[in-house]
Design a binder for these strands. Structure first.
Lengths: 327, 327
DNA sequence: CTGAAAGCGCTAACAG
DNA sequence: CTGTTAGCGCTTTCAG
């Protein structure tokens, strides 16, 4: 049952039906009522594909992340979906595992599907050519990550630098001198900002910095390595909570008690941080709000051409029980 | 740049272009080459909305869950997305918070967008009329949950009953007599199956069964209540890991040691189960595979009418350190 | 193997 | 306020 059937049923032209249903201007109240009644009676359901084709607006957005199973992205996804839903849009979810080819494949088919906008994790794995292609997509792109060399894209991110600084101030304030930072690969803009802020806040103390996988396994492995290198370490800043959990596990196995022997601070404030033992002191990052903000920005760019916008959201130190004053 | 531009460029008719690009039959090898070359040169990108309109196939699927932030659904979502991607489909993600109105709103707009199929969490919150509407959607629906009174839908689920039995056998086998089961509301088909299998496997021993929220908070609250009711309890089966974590926390506060004083077994095997202290013994549920299977089924139903299919995936007891023989 | 033409369902000028 | 008409970009008969 299409718009034509309604037209026949009501004895009016299809364009009148279209107007009546779009709720817009200029339709006789009485006529509209008749149309609405007929639509309900015949159980009319508009075909949004046809509408998208006629208007050029699909009312669909896309979110491209490395993996939704990462709780960080699950939160972002939820925020993005809520914002999309409130704006009457649907959200297509894509997982790339940071594979550049996969990411570009997604982007291309999304554009072919005429999505109104794309929110994505990062352009870190992409080549220069690929980034250039992104800029000429004809559809707005918002990044969840500040990446050097990706001018031209809007970004939303937590204040990573400030978060790193807060961690540094806190640990230094507790009197620690032998301080380490375990983090991920240095192509990760967010992680770099954290490391940078951290180091700056330590005024003078040079932390041992170890890089590896930014995951539970990575945190575990780096911590083992760290204590081979410097057994005197008394405080560790992990670049994210997953690493911090791996760190806690390694410390437990090494027989170092947290926080008595060594203090650990994470970054992210995932749900788990509260549940793990000891409850993890960490930097809270507004993941859900990041997802929402990204969608808001992408929608504003979709409706009118605008210069790239960079929104930075606040972070917060959450004090729990994994840190203490150096004795 | 559309198919018409290519036609003009190559001096052939649009239908030839269409055929050449669809890769199908009957196009001169030489002509196809010319078309492909022109397409590459002009950077032609097919408009999938137009294609969807012409064919009636959107090449899009939808996944409706209560909340992707629930790691269970994040895993399902990832499995579903992978399967969809391999089949050349995109996946729209929807979160309902188990709100029936929201769920039905999503379903309707998805159908209007002509998605090829819908995978959803559950029909539990829906009324009879709403379920009937779902059956006449004209688009296949697969449920991630067995729900009494939802005949007509395909389902994919873990073998919840068997999982419950495994938990029961295990606890009974460790010599426990004062056994409790904390679980969620009884509209949850999956949870009921677990409770049922559990009780049956205890042969003779009647467990204390407490119902509440199936979440961390719920597990916490029910455990406090449990020890008010029966301080002699030595073993607890939590209907899911989130509840088990709440339970562990409550036990810690109550000064009961796990597993020395009381054994705890969960259900799900979320990532966290391995990380928490003590590592949680639990029933593994193949969440990722459930997502994959659901998409496979929905696609098979999309391409040809078929009777509902019910796929049940195996579960597995994962022995860690939260249970021990009753002393 | 290729062209012509109809049509998918809806929107959007433009007249009236 | 409403009807006419021309598309949106692609697929798909049906002829040739």
């Amino acid at each position: 049952v299409t718009i034509k059937d309604l037209a026949r049923e009501c004895g009016v032209n299809v364009s009148t039906i279209s107007r009546a249903l779009s709720g817009s201007y200029g339709v006789n109240e009485e006529t509209r009522r008749r149309v609405l009644a007929a639509a309900a009676r015949l159980k009319y359901r508009p075909n949004r594909v046809a509408r998208a084709m006629a208007t050029g607006q699909s009312h669909t957005l896309a979110l491209i992340v490395s993996d939704v199973r990462n709780p960080y992205f699950a939160d972002v996804a939820r925020g993005a979906e809520d914002a999309a839903n409130e704006a009457g849009r649907d959200l297509i979810l894509c997982n790339t595992d940071l594979d550049a080819r996969k990411q570009m494949r997604y982007v291309r088919t999304l554009v072919e599907k005429r999505v109104d906008g794309i929110v994505m994790n990062s352009t870190a794995p992409l080549s220069k050519e690929e980034r250039a292609e992104l800029e000429n997509l004809g559809c707005p792109v918002v990044l969840l990550n500040r990446v050097a060399g990706s001018r031209g894209f809007s970004t939303v991110s937590a204040n990573n630098e400030e978060g790193g600084r807060a961690a540094g101030r806190y640990l230094a304030g507790l009197g620690h001198k032998e301080i380490a930072h375990i983090t991920g690969p240095d192509i990760q803009g967010n992680l770099n900002d954290r490391a940078h802020g951290f180091t700056r806040a330590l005024n003078g103390i040079a932390p041992t910095v170890l890089r590896g996988e930014h995951s539970f396994r990575g945190g575990y492995a780096l911590t083992r390595r760290l204590f081979d290198l410097n057994p005197a370490t008394t405080a560790i800043f992990a670049a994210n909570d997953a690493m911090a959990f791996g760190c806690l596990r390694a410390l437990m196995e090494l027989g170092r008690r947290v926080p008595d022997d060594v203090s650990v601070i994470g970054f992210d404030n995932v749900d788990l941080a509260e549940i793990v033992y000891p409850p993890l002191t960490t930097i809270h990052q507004p993941r859900y709000e990041i997802g929402r903000a990204a969608v808001e920005i992408v929608l504003s760019q979709a409706e009118e051409e605008r210069p790239p916008e960079h929104r930075v959201l606040g972070v917060q130190l959450i004090e729990r029980q994994s840190c203490r004053r150096r004795t």
